[in-house]
Computed example of a mutant assay.
Amino acid sequence: MSYYQPPGQGYGGYSAPPPQSPPPNHLVWAILTTILCCLPGGVVSIVYAAQVNSKWSAGDYQGAMKASKNAKTWAIVSAVVGLVGSAIYLVAMFALNSNSSSY
């Protein structure tokens, strides 16, 4: 006689205890990049950051780790896009001001 055991669950159908504490959700970083840098990428980062703790509490440890990684990645992308965009804007404004002052 064989019993089916779902993957990721211990003996008797109970889930295994979490391997460690929940991963960082990067919510503060996600909010700051949304406000200061890049709105679309920051919003995606906030969505992933909000999923980390709920997935961890539900026992979806791999999902929580993946959501944490995605939140961090999108926060980095947002920060880089915001900084590059700001640099391009400043260079363009400097170029326009230097051309108009020569007349």
Rank of each mutant, 00 (worst) to 15 (best):
G41Y: 03
G42W: 00
G82V: 04
Q20S: 13
G82A: 05
S15D: 01
V84S: 07
N99M: 15
Q5T: 08
L36R: 03
Y4I: 14
A75I: 07
S68I: 03
S102T: 13
A50H: 07
A16Q: 12
Q9N: 01
Y4K: 11
S102V: 12
G85F: 02
N25E: 10
T33N: 14
V47G: 02
A75E: 05
P40N: 05
P7G: 11
K72L: 13
S68E: 01
Q51F: 13
V84G: 03
P6N: 10
V91S: 13
V47A: 02
M93R: 13
P40H: 06
M65K: 14
Q5G: 04
V77I: 15
I31D: 04
A58V: 04
F94I: 06
P23G: 03
P24N: 12
I31T: 09
I35M: 10
V77E: 08
N53V: 01
V80C: 03
V81D: 01
Q51H: 13
M65W: 11
S21K: 05
A75K: 04
I88K: 12
H26M: 13
C38F: 14
K69H: 13
Y11E: 14
K55V: 01
V80I: 12
A67N: 04
L32S: 05
G12M: 07
S98M: 10
N70C: 08
V43E: 02
V80T: 03
V84K: 03
T33P: 07
G41H: 00
A30D: 06
G85N: 05
T34H: 07
Q51A: 11
G59C: 08
I88V: 14
K66P: 04
V47Y: 03
